[in-house]
């Protein structure tokens, strides 16, 4: 299975992120994003959904996913570490 690196983009906004990988799809809060399609897209603007951008790297795929947090979120959420996902199923989200 393609190595997928998820870079979290912390953002002060209401809501919560529930993330799951299914093959080449990322399901964020119930919406499926086809990573192959997004990686091939050459757009002037970032994606307006939870997945902002996907790009191909030497190691595989890298997806930037919004990570919503509140006004008093802890350091680990406001400055999150990327996670590498190589299996299907729920993806652990910081916080």
């Amino acid at each position: 299975m393609t190595k997928l690196t998820i870079v979290f983009a912390p953002v002060r906004r209401e809501g919560e992120l529930v993330l799951e990988r299914q093959g080449n799809s990322l399901i964020a809060n119930g919406t499926a994003y086809d990573l192959a399609v997004l990686a091939a897209e050459e757009s002037d603007s970032p994606g307006a959904g939870w997945v902002q951008s996907v790009r191909l790297t030497e190691e595989g795929l890298e997806a930037t996913v919004l990570l919503p947090h509140g006004a008093d979120a802890p350091e680990a959420v406001r400055f999150p570490q990327p996670v590498v996902v190589e299996v299907d199923g729920p993806v652990p989200v910081p916080g």
């Binding site: 983009a9 006004a71 999150p80």
Partner: peptide, 25 residues
């Protein structure tokens, strides 16, 4: 503190500032 509003009327603080890996707001 945390700013909030209902129908244009403030219901929270006046100013909210913070920072994360993407910068300051």
């Amino acid at each position: 503190g945390t700013v909030s509003e209902t129908g244009g009327t403030p219901t929270g603080a006046v100013l909210e500032s913070g920072s994360n890996a993407n910068g300051h707001y």
